[in-house]
Design a protein around this nucleic acid. Structure first.
Lengths: 183, 183
DNA sequence: CAACATACGGAACCGTGTTCCGTTTACCAA
DNA sequence: TTGGTAAACGGAACACGGTTCCGTATGTTG
């Protein structure tokens, strides 16, 4: 057995599309039952393809996360200074997070189910961030003791709630944070 | 009717004590049923005294929040510069948040039940923060366009998850953010 | 001490994530 | 074409946490 049944493959594809649409309309915390109903399947079908909510979220945003990871080295190679590359890359990350209502919150949830989401983000993006930080530190543009993990968590945290209140702008706050890294 | 029944007053006091202890041990997200069990009362009794979780949390931390609010003017009067006062006051706020496991998360929850918690924090602390910011801005120490609400939300967000992971230190990140406010 | 308003306890309800299992169906071989 | 079978499905059921409701118990007052 190597090939999945045709209906299974079709359902998985449908679920990814429907989930993506539901996330856009109702945020990543949309109830699993709603997604199932919209896709015309039972909740069991969702859980067979995606063992937890986190797996579904990871699957939906897989391409965008990979694109973000890939953008790091490209920016480093193409920007005027490492610090500019870092700022641009963080900007991409922030854009990604704030356009997914509730994702930043889920990212930092202490719920065990979201551990996988957390791990995936970190696995893919932490090395990229670390390289950018190292380059900027080597160029003497930022203090040398800034860790990639703390920066990513801080940035992710600052994105929580963006969009809920027009008086709060995560991009602005992240900008201040990055500015505060300078030597 | 002006006086509450003696048992009611006693229960309310017990609940405050037990809830405070439970928050310390298990975080502010400890189930209501657990608090009820520890206090030896039914859940109905909790809800009669505190209509929602948020009311209970507000009641438990009322004194500390008031103390934090009162510290603002005192620091402003006693510090070398307005910026130093701002930094010290933010430090107090951060200390308060990070020592209450899960409180920072609840503070920014989009759950309607926590709206009251959010409002109370903002009602009491926003004016204090605004005064400190205005003083620092007037002294030319920080950029003049920083809002109290965005700063408090940013700081609150940075405190989320502190303690869950020894590699993340909210105080450090907040320090960077405040540093990034400088002109 | 009686009578009544107040307060109590905890079962029940609701919403949400997740599991389980009887039923249906795609696929392949005869 | 047609069985047979493993894979996949649907949705009821369960776990859990916040909140509500109401019959019962009790402090208080006259």
């Amino acid at each position: 057995m190597v090939e999945k049944r045709a209906d299974a493959r079709r359902n998985q594809a449908t679920l990814l599309e429907v989930a993506a649409a539901a996330f856009v309309e109702s945020g990543v915390n949309v109830p699993v039952r709603d997604i199932a109903a919209r896709a015309g399947v039972g909740v069991g079908t969702i859980y067979r393809h995606f063992p937890t909510r986190a797996d579904l979220i990871v699957a939906v945003y897989h391409h965008q996360i990979e694109a973000c990871a890939a953008a790091g080295p490209a920016l480093l190679a193409g920007s005027a200074t490492p610090h500019a590359a870092l700022a641009e890359w963080i900007g991409l990350f922030v854009d990604f997070l704030v356009t997914k209502h509730g994702l930043a919150g889920a990212f930092h949830s202490d719920d065990a189910a979201f551990q996988k989401l957390h791990s995936y983000f970190l696995d893919r993006l932490l090395p990229v961030c670390a390289d950018l930080l190292a380059a900027a530190a080597a160029a003497g543009e930022i203090r040398p003791d800034v860790g990639a993990l703390e920066l990513m968590r801080g940035v992710g945290n600052l994105c929580i709630g963006d969009g809920d209140d027009s008086r709060y702008d995560a991009r602005r706050m992240v900008g201040f944070l990055i500015a505060g890294l300078r030597t």
